[in-house]
Design a protein around this nucleic acid. Structure first.
Lengths: 228, 228
DNA sequence: AGAACAAAAATTGCATACAATCCACGCATT
DNA sequence: AATGCGTGGATTGTATGCAATTTTTGTTCT
């Protein structure tokens, strides 16, 4: 038990929410959660406050906590923010990645090509995370990296089923090609543009996956569920 | 007392830290703070956790909270992150500001020119915040705006005395000119570049203000104090 | 004298008790 | 019948007590 109970609880709750055990808008009763996880209300409260800072839940003073209802508009903003953050990291990576980092980036990208060809969606998804994380790190700025990973985590519920789309890994790989090539040749503007393009296509693919539910309900601002 | 005690405490502590009442590295004793503010340890704990998420303090499990010691390297990263965030907002503003927003931006910029000429450093500093906030808003992305304001807040202790530098408002105004002009003419790349340039110069001006303490101690990673 | 170990003191984390606020339901009034 | 108000229940916010862990201090041995 190296960590504190509140920390573990926050992790467990985050996973539960992402997994969809608690639907958006669900009220999170402190006493109930305390019983369910076998602790007192104090660490539950601390975990809730912590989750609130990640945007997963909202706590209104004296009115309890609820799982965040994310409207299509907010989702769009999140995707755009992630695109801009990743594009910025890609630009900085093009400028300041070390030779070693560039070699590793190339190696991972090549391996992802094999995975895409082999049709290994799960493996590709895992490696995809590593690739993006590598680009965050290559920017050599922990503040930006932290923001990017946080935003990525926040979008995770909506990107989960992404790579089950037929042919998505192959297309992703092709888009990565432009990003990686630009970074490797030190083309800052090119890396920025290519990454922006890539994430935009990922978002488009997401809307396609939803059966365009997001687009159709755009005007009504109906909150969305995560993909299960 | 509409708000909760923890909320008020967090605000009070943040102001105290920014004002320099608690120097970086200072240990924040829960009991001590509880007595000092006339509440129990519980809201103190909650306030500390909340401040930790803003980066103002650090809480190590079972080892208490300390005011964050920010090294020159971290400060550099914060400045760069802010520059990139603001540049991104400027780029998006160039693309998507409404005519009304553009008019208001122009008006504020003009007014700041008068303030700079009049030598009203305090007024200029206040309007400066409004200008940057306006550009965050013009990006029409609350996620990015939130990140930018948070980073700006976090750098506040180090930018406080900025505009007392002789001639800084005039130079700032000239740099803003390029940013505002690019936004108004819808020049995305130009707005991005101009804003990046501006914030970089602000950072340079900060280092000058420190008597180059930051630059000189770069190799030793000695934490910095805020500007009082 | 300095280092290593042990016990005590202090501080944080968690549990429980109490107080304040919000919400729902019911009743009275218009 | 609908709206406003009041009371009771439920839920969150705060205080305090206890357990666990860290830090300090004192002692002893090299």
């Amino acid at each position: 038990m190296g960590e504190t109970a509140a920390e573990r609880l926050a992790q467990a709750l985050a996973e539960a929410i992402i997994a969809g055990d608690f639907p958006p808008g669900k009220r999170l009763d402190e006493q109930q959660l305390a019983q369910r996880y076998g602790v007192s209300r104090t660490p539950v409260r601390e975990a809730l406050r912590r989750l609130a800072t990640t945007g997963l839940i909202e706590v209104r003073p004296r009115r309890g906590a609820i799982v965040t209802r994310v409207t299509p508009e907010q989702l769009e903003e999140l995707f755009i923010a992630m695109a801009e953050l990743e594009a910025t990291c890609a630009r900085l990576s093009a400028l300041s990645m070390s030779p070693t980092e560039r070699r590793r980036l190339q190696a991972l990208h090549d391996r992802m090509g094999e995975l895409a060809h082999a049709g290994d969606a799960a493996g590709f998804a895992y490696a995809n995370d590593a690739l993006h994380t590598m680009i965050y790190a290559g920017a050599h700025n922990s503040v930006l990296a932290e923001m990017a990973t946080a935003t990525r985590r926040r979008l995770l519920p909506f990107r989960r089923a992404q790579f089950q789309l037929e042919g998505r890994p192959m297309r992703s790989h092709a888009e990565h090609e432009a990003v990686v090539a630009a970074i490797l040749r030190g083309d800052a503007q090119g890396a920025h543009a290519a990454m922006l393009h890539h994430v935009t296509l990922v978002e488009a693919s997401f809307e396609e996956l939803c059966g365009d539910a997001a687009a159709r309900s755009r005007g009504k601002s109906r909150p969305l569920d995560a993909l299960t």
